[in-house]
């Protein structure tokens, strides 16, 4: 069971890592095409956790 648990924890880590890369792209370049373009840095960083956690939904919406 420990092996499965380790795979799950690595999976969670990889998911968050991909989310971090995607999230940084989203709040910098991605938001240029959104209604938030030109808004302050604070609101962009407020959106970063969401982009990290739901990046598959955002990617799906783009395709």
């Amino acid at each position: 069971m420990l092996n499965i648990a380790q795979y799950i924890s690595y999976g969670l880590g990889i998911y968050v890592l991909i989310g971090l890369v995607f999230g940084l792209y989203f709040i910098t370049l991605g938001l240029r095409r959104e209604a938030l373009a030109g808004r302050g840095i604070i609101i962009r960083f407020m959106l970063l956790p969401g982009a990290i956690l739901i990046w598959p939904l955002l990617l799906k919406a783009k395709t």
Binding site: L47, G50, I52, L58, A61
Partner: peptide, 24 residues
């Protein structure tokens, strides 16, 4: 709870659409 907190900003309600956001 973290996913809900991270997507609680109104921007996500607008971006995901109200039905998806509410479902989440």
């Amino acid at each position: 709870l973290l996913i809900m907190a991270a997507t609680s900003h109104d921007f996500w309600l607008s971006r995901l659409s109200p039905p998806v956001w509410k479902g989440l």
